[in-house]
Amino acid sequence: MSNLIRSEWYKLTRNRSFWLILAALFLSAVVYCFMTYLDDPSDGGALDATSGLDMLRSAMGGNTYIIKIGLCVLAGFFVSSEYSTGTMKRAVSSGYSRSRIIVAKMLVFIGGSVLVALVFPVLCLAIGSLLFGGGSLPDVSAAEYVIRCLGLTVTLSAGFAAIVALIAVIFNDSGKTIGIGIIFFFFIDGVFVMIGNHLPFVLKIYEYSLLNEINHYADTAMASRDAVLSAVIPVATAIVFVALGVYAFRRKEIK
């Protein structure tokens, strides 16, 4: 298993899409921070932040799109592309069980996804703190908020990555994975709410899903029970979807 993980990590660190996404996020964070710094709300500007913590809170909002869309792109080029290049054949015929092969792939993808999800908020916090100073929040200590935000970013991105990885395992094609992943995340909240209006238990499921959790993960005021749920739900989701990925991959014929 460790050989597979080392190999997958090696491939991830040589994946151009991974570095391109990281570079784009780095650049976006720098530009966003300096735009905010240079923008003057009292003179008609729209960007309003006065501290590093403000920048983090603001970045967390935008990061939901990075988690949903960015990870679909990464999954397309890191997981699905293995089918189109034929390298999945190499892996499957290499003498490891399919379960191990796909678990290693999904774990490394989740790891890479967590890195991708952390770049924007961490940089916004760091650059914002340099430009404006660290700052403080009324409901929560700065340290607690930062740790909670980044911690939930880790767990939520892991959960979302597992969902996207399953889509990538099922659809052998980068384009399909990216397209279907984005469409899925674009509509799924609405679908849950719409069905939930008729079937209340569906709404309850949605409330306790990571799809809903990500809407609240940057709240300054969060009860400890909610914080625990926000951490546990994504981790449980990740475990379930990795298991589904294993199930799907074990039954899949590699063409």
């Binding site: 040589r14 994946n15 151009r16 290049t85 034929g86 390298t87 054949k89 190499r90 015929s93």
Partner: peptide, 11 residues
């Protein structure tokens, strides 16, 4: 094993 098209990482 080398089946069908050469299975390589293009980048």
């Amino acid at each position: 094993v080398a089946i069908e098209t050469p299975a390589l990482y293009p980048s």
